[in-house]
């Protein structure tokens, strides 16, 4: 993982800003006791279900914004600033988190 390349001036800058949901793991670890990035998330807008890791992440706005790869609807917004964490999960209808297997 790295910063986006500065070359390729013809590319769509919005598309080029798009990352995978797995890059949000560090930020969400501030809050969640388990890693929810591999969790299956159902988009509240279109019903598509898949791991949060495969949602589109836009990391350069004031909040981290995860959008559905199917309908582009916002499923999660997260920010940590000014001594407050803000979490908006209104676009995520359901999160299914697999617990680690018992040893």
């Amino acid at each position: 993982m790295n910063e986006p390349p500065a070359e390729e001036p013809t590319v769509d800058r919005t598309a080029e800003r798009r990352l995978d949901g797995n890059a949000v793991t560090g930020a969400l670890a501030e809050l969640f006791a388990v890693d929810i990035v591999p969790a299956d998330c159902t988009c509240a807008h279109c019903g598509r279900t898949g791991p949060l890791a495969q949602y589109d992440l836009y990391a350069d706005s004031p909040a981290l914004v995860l959008r559905c790869a199917g309908c582009t609807g916002v499923v999660l917004r997260y920010s940590s600033a000014g001594g407050r964490i803000r979490l908006d999960l209104s676009g995520a209808r359901l999160l299914v988190i697999r617990l680690p297997e018992e040893p």
């Binding site: 910063e3 990352l19 890059a23 990391a59 981290l64």
Partner: peptide, 9 residues
């Protein structure tokens, strides 16, 4: 997949 880029900012 893992796409490059800045996070946080």
């Amino acid at each position: 997949t893992e796409r490059f880029g800045a996070t946080g900012g």
